[in-house]
Computed example of a mutant assay.
Amino acid sequence: MNVSQNRNYVWALSLVFLTLWPSSANSSADHTADQILGRWLFPSQGASVELYRHGDLYFGRVVEVSPVSREEMGLVKDQLIMKNLTFDGRGWSGGELINPKTGNHFGVELSMRDAKTLTASVYKGFRWLRKEYVLTRPTNL
């Protein structure tokens, strides 16, 4: 190979690498972000929520509710309770949790402890004044 052919070869390989590299990074990030998709249980609340993705945003809706949760918390099946969450590389934030009983909106952030445990931090105004809920994946699905 002469010098001219060698330069063209290196240039072509660089171009191919730069073209393919961003797309593989996005698919990896998408896979990480999508770990929360599916059904999650609020063990102490007697309800479950399905987290789903629409575009780049994540949402949560009630899929199962016990009579006690319906009465005490105002939960209704198929009700949207989390909206507009985005993935920042570490967790899901920037979204809102809607209190089904009062209609009040709260800030919400989600983080995964492990593959079967999700923590929802709910706050109004100040993030350091928050309440945390632990959600678990159902084992029978």
Rank of each mutant, 00 (worst) to 15 (best):
L80Q: 15
K101E: 09
R61I: 00
S28H: 10
G55C: 01
V62Q: 00
V76I: 14
V76D: 03
T86P: 00
S44H: 12
G107P: 05
R70S: 15
A12M: 09
D34A: 07
F17G: 11
V16W: 04
N140P: 01
T19I: 15
T32E: 15
V63S: 02
G74W: 07
T117G: 07
D34Q: 11
D34V: 02
P100L: 09
T86Q: 10
V49D: 00
E132M: 11
L129P: 02
Q79L: 00
R130C: 07
I36T: 09
Q45G: 14
L141P: 01
S66W: 05
P43F: 02
T117E: 11
G46I: 06
V68Y: 04
V16T: 11
N8M: 12
S14D: 12
L141D: 11
P43M: 02
P100M: 08
R127E: 13
V65K: 00
I81M: 12
L41N: 14
K101Y: 08
V76L: 12
P22E: 06
Y133A: 07
L118Q: 02
A47Y: 00
S93R: 12
M112T: 04
Y123Q: 02
E72N: 14
G38L: 07
T139L: 13
V134K: 13
R90Y: 09
S14A: 14
R127P: 01
T19E: 05
S121I: 01
V49E: 00
V65T: 14
Y9A: 08
L80D: 10
W92N: 01
K77C: 00
L110W: 03
D56V: 05
F42D: 00
V63F: 05
M112D: 05
L37H: 06
F106P: 02
Q79D: 01
S93E: 13
K124Q: 10
P100R: 09
N104I: 02
S24V: 13
W128Q: 05
T102R: 07
K116V: 08
L37G: 08
A12W: 08
E132W: 00
G95E: 01
T32M: 13
K83V: 02
G94Y: 03
L20M: 15
I81W: 07
V134R: 13
E109K: 11
P138M: 06
P22T: 05
Q45I: 14
A25V: 11
T117N: 13
A25H: 10
D88H: 07
D56F: 03
L85D: 01
G89N: 08
F42S: 03
R90K: 13
K77R: 15
N99C: 11
P43T: 02
Y9V: 04
G107W: 04
G95C: 01
L129S: 09
T32K: 15
T32R: 14
R130F: 08
Y123V: 06
L80G: 08
V68I: 12
Q5H: 10
L13M: 12
V62I: 15
M112C: 09
T136R: 13
G125Q: 09
F59N: 08
D30F: 07
W21A: 14
G46H: 05
L18D: 06
D56G: 06
R130H: 14
L97E: 03
F126L: 14
D30Q: 13
D30A: 10
T32V: 13
V68C: 01
G94D: 05
T139E: 14
V134Y: 04
H54Q: 14
T119G: 01
E96S: 10
A33L: 05
Q35V: 01
W21N: 11
L129I: 12
A120F: 06
